[in-house]
Nucleic acid binder design. Structure first.
Lengths: 340, 340
DNA sequence: CTGTTAGCGCATTCAC
DNA sequence: GTGAATGCGCTAACAG
């Protein structure tokens, strides 16, 4: 592989001149530039990025850590991030969770092969983040908070989303509403539960412990929860699953038991995954503004990279998406947003 | 940020010794190593990966270029790739298409910040790949062929998959089968058409040009194709859409026109996306072994990185997935009961 | 076992 | 405008 030195030699100039001819560094006579460019082309010269990064102490690259790529909204998130990274001429690299996450974390974040990181992966331990975030490596946390320097937070308003969707059920006249939670250590799930709780309180309803079930965000756990719920002596009127996957499981469970949704029981979820609008009945849910979240996260990160000190945490609003799974036969509902 | 020199000084050893104490380079007396480790810990030392990459001329990183992340099987592909990259201690970075693709391509591939690349993105021009693939940067192409050195190919057997699914319809007694293609320049779509053609030929049926429609792999184009097809003077008995998204559009089109699937017309797709099993009727389709494809691609890439010369192209078998959308009434099926 | 030294390839400062 | 020289931080080869 040809190096800058080879190009310079062939062009009959110094290495410094070759460098500034190739980049827009200092002024170079037009003839000289042409010579250098031609030599570079002849030798099929490609600058060595690693050497440049070492010299300039910048990589112009950010990394995004995702737990999994399967979710449909991750794509939106990435698009949002990229839209602002592209503008700045930064490359965006995506790293998926799993076994290799530690390798990637070490390589990119700890060993400084990127200028900043955005993390949406609950399995990255707090302490790991705390011990790596620093002035040369700011980190933006999505859907999680962690009070430590050089660490910013961006999140959708899960609590409000849960509040809205619960209220939607309450306004439809439902009162006995079951809740299927995510894993016990899920921050999102707690916030959603809080919103659920808040809406009930406003209607003077206390949490009925027998109507709260624990899932783990998988479809299967939703199915199991549905079985438990449907075996309850008196059926709830609504079921709020803390995410759509579980809501799909609940739907299957109801179908298997011959319970009609929404006539006998309304079912709602959270996230608005793609399948939500395809399943029958189409699922009422809450949509997070993933594209915007990505954009805001990236902008915050760049501000931190630029050395701005106090970039505050940000919370973005969610949207209620009303579909068939919560449409009561008798009630006129008030659709806020609409489905595909 | 502390450097190796700082650590060495604090530990009272030479920089070379510090280096070999931190890595598993050469033998270091246990006491010395302990001193170095402690100094590193005190200074919160982190090795500079960029400097190391420059020195060692390796990055231990591969990049995967994907057109989009939204597709559900991309996640599987990545998992397959990672499973083998992880084993080798390589980091896997994912790069999405779009505006930033050029930035990423230049930065990672051209400027040598990775050791190899896997490309599943039809929008990367052939010439770009041809001009960058070299001994220091082998490239594995997924679902595409390009005869050029240091460039390998891995693909699912699209033709055979299409052949199988068409034959499945033929064996169900259908004869007039429409085909909805992808974009004209899609290699995948051509191969699928070829399989369709081959199956028909075997049954002594010639291609009926009036039954071939062009789509662009989007759901919307499937819907449009369905409209065109259903306006045909005599309805076909089956519709083979070259991918599932379009098949979903066809399904919508049939529903909108009051055409019953599969009773009046069978509809099949290709890819087995997640929604395929949720839609009603559930979609008959062809599944690509994405996880395996990823694994095979990564293994081939590593072989090339290791300097092996002739790594041959590989083709992996697909699987027919029969669901309701192709079940003819005569085949004794109860359209009343449904299950996931 | 450990210290010294020479680059990896490039951008950049200082002379001219 | 251009050339020569310096060093980014590290690994590895060479000497002790």
């Amino acid at each position: 592989m040809a190096t800058l030195r080879d190009v310079a030699r062939l062009a009959g100039v110094s290495i410094g001149t070759a460098s500034s001819a190739l980049n827009q560094g200092r002024k170079v006579k037009d003839i000289t530039r042409r010579k250098v460019l031609e030599a570079a082309s002849v030798l099929n010269y490609r600058p060595n990025g690693v050497a440049r990064d070492l010299k300039t102490q910048r990589t112009d690259t950010i990394v995004v850590f995702l737990h999994d790529l399967a979710g449909p909204f991750y794509s939106e998130l990435i698009r949002g991030i990229q839209s602002v990274a592209d503008e700045r001429g930064y490359a965006t690299i995506i790293s998926r969770g799993g076994v290799g996450r530690q390798i990637a974390w070490t390589r990119f974040v700890v060993e400084g092969r990127v200028d900043g990181a955005i993390v949406l992966d609950p399995t990255v331990p707090d302490e790991v983040i705390r011990s790596t975030a620093c002035s040369t490596l700011p980190i933006v946390l999505l859907d999680r908070t962690l009070a430590t320097p050089y660490c910013l937070h961006v999140a959708a308003d899960h609590e409000d989303g849960a509040y809205q969707i619960t209220k939607h059920l309450l306004l439809s006249g439902l009162r006995r509403i079951a809740f299927v939670s995510g894993p016990i250590d899920s921050h999102d799930s707690s916030l959603r539960f809080r919103g659920y709780h808040k809406a009930l309180s406003e209607f003077g309803i206390n949490i009925d412990e027998t109507l709260v079930f624990r899932g783990d965000f998988t479809e299967r756990s939703g199915l199991l929860a549905a079985r438990a719920i449907l075996s309850h002596e008196n059926l709830p009127e609504g079921i709020f699953a803390a995410n759509d996957e579980m809501a799909l499981g609940v739907l299957s469970g109801c179908e298997a038991s011959g319970i009609k949704v929404p006539d006998q029981v309304a079912v709602v979820g959270f996230d608005d995954i793609a399948i939500a609008s395809y399943v029958r009945p189409a699922l009422t849910t809450v949509r997070q503004p993933m594209y915007e979240l990505g954009g805001v996260a990236a902008r915050s990160l760049f501000r931190a990279i630029d050395g701005e000190q106090d970039v505050s945490s940000q919370v973005l609003p969610t949207t209620l998406v009303v579909r068939d799974s919560s449409k009561r036969p008798s009630v006129n509902d008030t659709p806020m947003a609409q489905s595909v």
